[in-house]
């Protein structure tokens, strides 16, 4: 394979093939290493697998492709504004099935921008919510005993939990 390669092929954890352009892959250090390996090695018939499921990897690649031009060349303020709006739209996703895996994938792929965005989205979903609302949004089971819950309430008398 020559160094003029424009995209690399990777496998998702479900075994599906995905193509990532070189500029988009640069947003992630591990992907970048993979890319260099593909570009410079002779035994390049081996397709690397990324431990991210297909549903999530589609989103991750979508994010990379959108952010790559700006990350690689810099952009004007209006572009930055447009990208911000795009990020907000992009993050409107299922909390349990996608957002969780996006956060895990961004961490695993060392993608700071996506990682920040996902953390902020999760934090925004908690803002102003009651404890039971947060549990519902994030599908979390309450593992506190009633005594422990009472103790928490006592510790924070100024805070409303409901």
């Amino acid at each position: 394979m020559s160094s003029s390669v424009e995209a690399i092929t990777v496998l998702s954890s479900d075994g599906d093939e995905f193509k990532i352009t070189v500029s988009a892959a640069k947003l992630s250090k591990p992907l970048n290493w993979m890319l260099e390996d593909v570009c410079f090695s002779d035994d390049c018939d081996e397709v690397p697998t990324i431990e991210v499921n297909s549903k999530t990897l589609v989103k991750v690649i979508e994010y990379c492709e959108k952010h790559a031009p700006r990350a690689n060349s810099g952009a004007s303020d209006s572009d930055a504004e447009e990208l911000k709006k795009w990020d907000i739209e992009f993050m409107k996703m299922d909390v349990k099935d996608i957002l969780f895996h996006i956060l895990m994938a961004a961490n695993y792929l060392h993608m700071e921008g996506l990682y920040d965005l996902a953390c902020q989205t999760a934090a925004d979903l908690m803002k102003g919510m009651t404890v039971s609302q947060i549990r519902k949004i994030f599908h979390i089971k309450n593992d506190f005993s009633s005594e422990e819950q009472e103790q928490l309430r006592r510790q924070h008398p100024g805070c409303s939990f409901d």
Binding site: M104, N107, T130, V131, I134, F138, I140, N142, C159, F161
Partner: peptide, 28 residues
């Protein structure tokens, strides 16, 4: 979400105001 690695949870919670942080701490 309750299995999220500690560092990711901490990063998320560090973006919350005090009242939201206290409520999040009562989730599990």
């Amino acid at each position: 979400w309750s299995d999220l690695p500690e560092e990711l949870l901490e990063l998320t919670f560090s973006r919350l105001t005090l009242a939201d942080n206290v409520r999040a701490s009562a989730v599990c």
